[in-house]
Amino acid sequence: MDISIPELGDVDEVRLVRWLVGVGQTVQAGQELAEVEADKAVFVIEAPAAGVVREIISAQGESARPGRVIGRLEVQ
């Protein structure tokens, strides 16, 4: 399952502030995975399901457009 940047209205780009989990880590549904920053606020991406983080695609500090896949989760 993809971990992606949420749609945030007319926000064109956000900065990936930090990952709160690492590759291989087991996470619960709703667990905080990553923080992204727009001009007005920091948004926290929650796990869409319980599983294991299999891949981190975008690194901390990178800029990304809403909708972009930044990591992958193997649902369990």
């Binding site: 949420p6 749609e7 007319d10 905080e32 007005k40 606020a41 948004f43 926290v44 991406i45 399901a49």
Partner: peptide, 30 residues
């Protein structure tokens, strides 16, 4: 000023986005 975005929020927002596009409407939220 830290906003949690849950999977349910994202699903609900996707439904709303489709409806707004279908009806060609603007929102101040965006």
């Amino acid at each position: 000023l830290r906003v949690r975005v849950s999977p349910a929020d994202r699903e609900g927002a996707a439904v709303l986005t489709r409806a707004l596009e279908e009806h060609s409407l603007h929102t101040v939220c965006q």
